[in-house]
Design a protein around this nucleic acid. Sequence first.
DNA 1: CAGTGGTCTAGACCACAGT
DNA 2: CTGTGGTCTAGACCACTGT
Lengths: 258, 258
Amino acid sequence: MQSFPLERDGLVPVYVQIRKRLLDRITSGDLKAGDLMPSEQEISGTLGVSRMTARQAVKSLCDWGIAYSMRGKGTFVSPVKLEKNFRQAQSFTEEMNALGFRPSSQVFALKAERAPTEVAEALKAGRNSEVIRLDRLRLANSKPMGVECAYLLHSMCPGLVHVFDPQASLYETLWKQFGLSIAVADEVVEVGLPSAAAASLLRISRNKPVFLFTRVSYARRGHSMQAVEYVKSTYRGDRYKIANRLTRAKLKLAGISV
Amino acid sequence: MQSFPLERDGLVPVYVQIRKRLLDRITSGDLKAGDLMPSEQEISGTLGVSRMTARQAVKSLCDWGIAYSMRGKGTFVSPVKLEKNFRQAQSFTEEMNALGFRPSSQVFALKAERAPTEVAEALKAGRNSEVIRLDRLRLANSKPMGVECAYLLHSMCPGLVHVFDPQASLYETLWKQFGLSIAVADEVVEVGLPSAAAASLLRISRNKPVFLFTRVSYARRGHSMQAVEYVKSTYRGDRYKIANRLTRAKLKLAGISV
DNA sequence: CAGTGGTCTAGACCACAGT
DNA sequence: CTGTGGTCTAGACCACTGT
């Protein structure tokens, strides 16, 4: 471990600082895949913290899949790469920026309306709930990538119609204007062929396969998790792909065997 | 909390027993989505454990997304359903069983060969590595779902060609015969049209959109994580869909801001 | 103010791996 | 045997929430 002292001013938790040093050693190449990391006792002694604090730093790296522990042997650096391409509940804007593309949008609709049945059910809202509908064509480096039709619960973001900047990130606006932070999203991915309207906007023929996404996004608001957004979108199959990291179930589900 | 005493025989960690009780209260409906869970102090006092132990039980539920904590307010049951449809690194067999379908396979090839360049690179194996190739048509309730072409590192499962039962689960065989447990898989999903061969096997026309999967699976073997399997597969778009749960990035990547 | 979770300490015993 | 991670204790101080 580096020898300069930890900051004990309480601004940054000690275990976070330790984790940062371990991460730095991994990203710098000092610690490589499969390498033995410093033991909890060693960290404890070297940095003058209790073993529980050292353990907290190491444990969180294991939780993230960056390291793994074996009783009696030690903790090792996981060989799985720390690539960022795995999809998070991030916006199109964030995703494209992360990939190095320049995102933009053309807004086709931004208006309040009654929630269609399908939308109301997905958002667990009442039958006559008001939603804000936002239809957009998404482009990366000015090339069409997909079309999205989003429905947002009006009660969660009143006035969005007036404050939304068509070129801004919707998620960023939700956060800055309404304090809504999208924490988790459930997404269903299907393949299919584009509707006539979608094909025209995407500039592809109707027999080209596309991704069809249906997504429900949830935000933490106060002390509850709230469905906020329902999106149906169509993305070009020749310009888009998905990277997933699948991990083995920890929960056997059905209640037991945890 | 239930009042009967914890078992302190060391067989099952105390915090696991506490977690089990909390989970039971959730699955039984005693604690519902959004409900306030017992506080760490309360668990500590009621069950006679230290607060750190109570915290460990609660913390792991939060790590799993089953609950979430708010400083100063308490810990609440997460409203996100505990459905199991989200994809794990599980085999076709396990996935279909989980969905209530009867899985079966037709094996078209099972033989040793030199790894094609693309395969050798993905598995980080030498240029002339020997792999076992396994081509299968996958069926659910006797209906074709997809075709898979898998390459397995021969050095990790020597003799697989002879011991593999065509109707068995490959992953189960890898575990029972070679001690290989697939822990994580990286998967890229694309859409496209089927090859002539795939279309024929799947009994669809060549202009029907399909899922194209490319997957690399890793197993823990001893103290290292090892790429074991490279799979390319084609699945019918009309019979298959993907459910993903996306969670907000914890790592900002690029090394910093953890 | 009291109650909550977030962090931290300085010990302890255990199971397990490797010598 | 030593060294490792896994668990556990009985305290402590802090920041934050709600009254």
